[in-house]
Amino acid sequence: MIYRDSKTILEVRGLRASVDGVEILKGLDLTVKSGEVHAIMGPNGSGKSTFSKVLAGHSAYEVTGGSVLFEGRNLFELVPEERARAGVFLAFQYPIEIPGVANSQFLRLTYNTVQAQRGRDELDPLEFDDFVREKMKLLEMNPDFLERSVNEGFSGGEKKRNEILQMALLEPRLAILDETDSGLDIDALRIVSNGVNHLANKDNAMVLVTHYQRLLNYIVPDYVHVMEAGRIIKTGGKELALELETRGYDWVSAERKAAMEVAA
């Protein structure tokens, strides 16, 4: 939701980034304020996922230009774990499986690490168990998931629910959801969306990276951005998503080319 006196959480200016020497992001601009939900849409290869990974600090993505301020701090001065502790959260498109590590152990360690960094109390295993079970209800997750290895053998929907559970535990200021809707059936999509809606408040912000409009029926964005060739080329309200769904992405780039020709 757009609030009048909201603070700027994320300010991206002219961001350029490469993977293996190939430039993917070519001058991306974006401003996200607290309370807002942004959707970034675009065809495959437009750089959406690269943008997500750059924000989270993946080392395979090299930032070659521009700036990103997170709550006024230079994000690129922080290593990935510092970003997470400061309040940046990336829900992975493909959550990693970690055989041999119990989900409960992983969740408690990450929770306590972040709590300690934020100067808050850590929870012992029993306290944490009560706490996480409450959070799991929000995502209609069976407590059995605590005993299993992290994401191992989870279905696509279960993995995505586990991502949102981590988001609920870590209480980020900025959550980036990378293709969270991919691979979800309609029930899982509803559950995951409910969870995200429940977690969104006036002090945090969500960036939904998605290929399809479907997710936006459940999580209603304040802004929809269209990405093409490493830049945001059009921004609108939630109705832009519906228009993209019916007309595809091509008309946006056609419109943009026409506008550029007029300007020339």
Binding site: A56, G57, H58, S59, A60, V79, P80, E81, R83, A84, R85, F89, L90, F92, P95, I96, I98, P99, G100, V101, F106, L109, T110, T113, V114, Q117, S149, Q166, L170
Partner: peptide, 27 residues
């Protein structure tokens, strides 16, 4: 390295992430 990044993106230090994965291998 993707597993290490996943754990770091959840706030664990690089050494804690590597330890957890190493432990898991032996566990």
């Amino acid at each position: 390295s993707e597993e290490v990044f996943y754990l770091r993106s959840r706030g664990l230090s690089e050494s804690a992430a590597r330890n957890m994965l190493t432990y898991a291998f032996g566990a």
